[in-house]
Amino acid sequence: MSYLSLKNVSYSYANGYEAVQNMNLDFDLGESAAIIGQNGAGKTTAVKLMNRLLIPTEGEVFVNNLSTKKATTAEISKMIGYVFQNPDDQIFQDTIYKEIAYGLKNQKLESAVMKNKVEAAAEICGLKESLNEHPYNLPYSKRKFITIAAVLATDPNVIILDEPTAGQDRESIERLGKLISHLANQNKTVITITHDMEFVVREFKRVIVLANKQKRRDASPREIFWDKELLKLSDLKQPFICQLADTLGYKGILTIEELLERDKNETYYN
């Protein structure tokens, strides 16, 4: 069985609202994916089921062959790290160093080992220079990286990022990209919820489309972004380059480079 697997999972909130309906998903180690869909499609509920913040009302979720029904969230968190959408829900220390180190405290590490882990996580999140700063001295967008670093430091096998691209500038989005490929190289799985379609095209080979509580499609970006029927049904839009290619009359294009290659000899536009 895959490392992380959702088997016929449904979830209804206590008030009766059903947020996820009969969902099947499998993730192997080293296999990253983007989850896209409109608000209310069930994205956040789906990932909360993965680390046992929610327990399926029907079906089962398995992490490393362990059903989440038989574990605590704290136990699952060693295997699955979840970075919340709003960093302010997690930050409570007065330096970035302490915040990143907090999750490691329970592991009874030697201080030198701990320092190394914190610094490594800070490095990849671009926080090395500001370890002694107060987290709230950084803007909201950068605070997000503090919570990412805090989860990275604990070294889980699966990392869930809930809308990490929101409000980020170009440099930070590039940093996120590097971070995801770095983790993939270490055979980790990164599951990212995002609204940034350009980011999805650049960084992911697998895209999961959720709409109206259900998984609509689980495929490559090219298949997803040229499935116009699916996009329309899911209230999503093609990335700008796909739209441009479409306008110019080319199908199946995903990146600027591909588009350049395709119309090398054409002069559709002057």
Partner: peptide, 21 residues
């Protein structure tokens, strides 16, 4: 714009690269 930390629209980027080519 990019040198100053900003970014360019995807469509513009394509046409700039095309012109360069």
């Amino acid at each position: 714009v990019v040198e100053y930390g900003g970014q360019l629209p995807q469509v513009a980027l394509y046409f700039i690269k095309k012109a360069e080519a």
